[in-house]
């Protein structure tokens, strides 16, 4: 292009960095270019804030309305794993920031190593998430058609008998109490072997899956008031878990996108691809990763640490 003669492969005049940045044709100087990219990335992050914001709003709304349900349901979330996840993500944030620092100084290998560490932490995060999700699904807490709060509560209370003498929060057992009342009214019966909670779990009463019209009429069961109230509570808990899975799922998708981008960058750094001659792409990736970290910083206390 004829205007290439106007381009400067300028050494950054700021003197902060020892890396050579190339000026694109639409920009006049490097400061303009750098600031433009950073502002552009920040405006994208603003859209991401709004993206998660709606979910945070839904969460907050239902938490205020159904606080007791939340208090009870959050016990299913493992605080230890959540804390570990937070630790992992914070460490990955540090390594990402360091990667940007070294990118500004043109130290390819260090950048690649730090990004690899960040990736490793991200994988660890996803691994812990996988463990959490599978345990939830096995307990019947995935909020789809197979959502079975009765089973989950029963299993939980079998394994978590409160220690003698400790005081339980009186609000934290609304659903469980209804379930116990329903059991006394013979609306629900369970057999839970202590060693293998997944098997031999029988519930009498009613089955959500309607297979035919005839079935539908046949299944109208007169439920005891306690059973009705339990179903209402279970519905609210289903909302809690829907929001939990949506928020952590969306966050997880963002982590996976981050992993893909970081892997690409690592490969580019190792093969000296010209796209990473400039430190700016790495800085933008770093901004994205820190945003992912911030979302988790808010998610963790809100979902796991309800008291």
């Amino acid at each position: 292009m004829s205007l290439k003669s106007l381009e400067n492969a300028a050494v950054a005049s700021s003197g902060h960095h020892m890396i050579e940045q190339k000026l694109s044709v639409q920009f006049e100087d490097l400061d303009q270019q750098n600031e433009s990219y950073i502002v552009g990335m920040w405006s994208f992050l603003v859209t991401e804030v709004m993206f998660f914001g709606a979910l945070f709003l839904a969460y907050t709304l239902y938490r205020v309305m159904y606080f007791n349900t939340y208090l009870e349901a959050h016990h299913f979330l493992d605080v230890k794993l959540g804390t570990l996840n937070t630790l992992v993500l914070l460490s990955s944030s540090l390594s990402a920031a360091l990667a940007v620092f070294y990118a500004q100084h043109g130290q390819r290998i260090k950048v690649a190593l730090l990004l690899a560490f960040t990736c490793l932490c991200a994988f660890g995060f996803m691994g812990i998430k996988y463990v959490e999700y599978t345990s939830k699904i096995n307990e019947g807490l995935l909020p789809d058609q197979n959502f079975n709060y009765a089973k989950a509560l029963t299993v939980f209370h079998e394994h978590h008998k409160p220690a003698a003498g400790t005081e339980e929060n009186p609000r934290a057992n609304v659903a469980w109490e209804q379930l116990e009342l329903a059991r006394k009214a013979n609306q629900v019966s369970f057999v839970v072997p202590k060693d293998n909670p997944e098997t031999t779990f029988v519930e009498s009463g009613f089955d959500n899956r309607v297979t035919s019209a005839a079935d539908a009429t046949a299944r109208v069961v007169v439920k005891s008031p306690a059973r009705e109230r339990f179903d209402i509570e279970a519905g609210k808990a289903k909302i809690f878990f829907s929001i939990y899975f949506c928020m952590t799922g969306l966050h997880g998708i963002h982590v996976i996108i981050g992993i893909i981008c970081m892997t690409t960058f690592i490969l580019m750094y190792l093969t000296k691809h010209p796209a990473v001659d400039d430190y700016l792409p790495t800085e933008m990736l770093g901004l994205y990763w820190h945003f992912v970290d911030i979302v988790w910083i808010f998610l963790f206390p809100l979902m796991y640490l309800i008291s």
Partner: peptide, 24 residues
């Protein structure tokens, strides 16, 4: 920038509700 992401996630929730049965 400030508005579109909100409808994006809301519509995505509708799809999730439709396909996976989550309820919000």
């Amino acid at each position: 920038m400030l508005g579109t992401p909100v409808v994006a996630i809301t519509l995505a929730l509708v799809v999730v509700e439709r396909t996976l049965g989550f309820g919000i």
